[in-house]
Design a protein around this nucleic acid. Structure first.
Lengths: 170, 170
DNA sequence: CCAGTTATGTTATAGTATTACGCTTGCTAC
DNA sequence: GTAGCAAGCGTAATACTATAACATAACTGG
């Protein structure tokens, strides 16, 4: 389970790849990848970090793509429904999907020091949760699995109070 | 793993028990169970549902226990830190702990129809998540595991659009 | 009692999200 | 092509969630 986001990698390839996969997915399903939506996805893809809706809105509005909250929320809703992005509930923020294409349930590892977020695979955890739910007669439709803590880089920053703003490996 | 909340049970005993356990725990650790805090816990215990901070505040203010948001948030922070309540991140709401005393990581099963919330045991799911985190070199400090779906009662309400406001088994 | 800490009261403000309504755009059927 | 319809966007207003900051009061330990 590659926890992309904590390791150096070819980020521009990772962005381009995701963008074109999303494009293709839209074409295949008849979804409309409009300018606001595409730009919103680009903004999210630019970092392995969760961004608040108003962070997105700030960028969009600078670029003349919309100035009111619903613009950002509508784009984010689209991306989330389409599976191109996820909402990180513990942060009330949004992040681009790191496993585009795979029909998956995401799990997030959130670093409280540098704020980076990695998307891991939850299949195992979800299996156990399903068991518990089944025992209770509950039918799961959506799961939220998130963990807050320290990423590998921030653990070494003496006493774990690191403030380093981790780059996006440009 | 008893998913209390979806089954009928002796609710007043469950409230009284939790309240006195909390009281005892405070006494043992030198924590102060003040009127606002106790009342907040009672309000949460009254239902197996998550309540927003402002729902709590509404009740407190009717009772002359405080009228401004910080009153509710401070009480909730205390209860959460003490382990008497949990925050349900997917709902931005708070719920009384159903397993008081146990040092646990909660998992919630949230019914989208009747809004009731059951607290299950996450130990297994958490174990798997720990494995994933360890593989990524991430150190977990807190986990959030929540599932939205339909509780046993609401699945039978034709096409799952039930609106029944499930009682608290008074 | 006094000093220090912890809790509460209150004002103000920040951050997150939605409702509602009207206009525009793009697609489909004629 | 154009009428009708659905989807998307622009905007204003508002609701909901949460915190900062500072003053006052209450409990604690010496």
């Amino acid at each position: 389970m590659p926890a992309i986001g904590f390791q150096p990698h070819d980020h521009s390839a990772c962005v381009d790849g995701a963008l074109s996969k999303a494009q293709a997915h839209c074409a295949a399903l008849g979804l409309r990848m409009t300018p606001v939506r595409r730009r919103t996805l680009e903004i999210l893809l630019a970092e392995h970090r969760a961004l608040g809706a108003y962070d997105i809105l700030g960028v969009l509005s600078e670029e003349g793509l919309g100035a009111q909250p619903p613009v950002a929320y509508r784009a984010l809703d689209f991306l989330v429904k389409a599976g191109f992005a996820h909402k990180v509930e513990a942060l009330n923020a949004y992040i681009a999907c790191a496993h585009l294409g795979a029909d998956h349930t995401p799990a997030f590892l959130i670093c409280r020091a540098c704020k980076s977020v990695a998307e891991a695979d939850t299949a195992p955890a979800k299996g156990r949760l399903d068991d518990a739910a089944r025992a209770a007669g509950f039918v799961i439709e959506r799961t939220v699995v998130e963990a807050e803590g320290l990423c590998p880089d921030c653990q070494t920053d003496t006493k774990a109070e690191g403030t380093k703003a981790k780059g996006t490996t440009p």
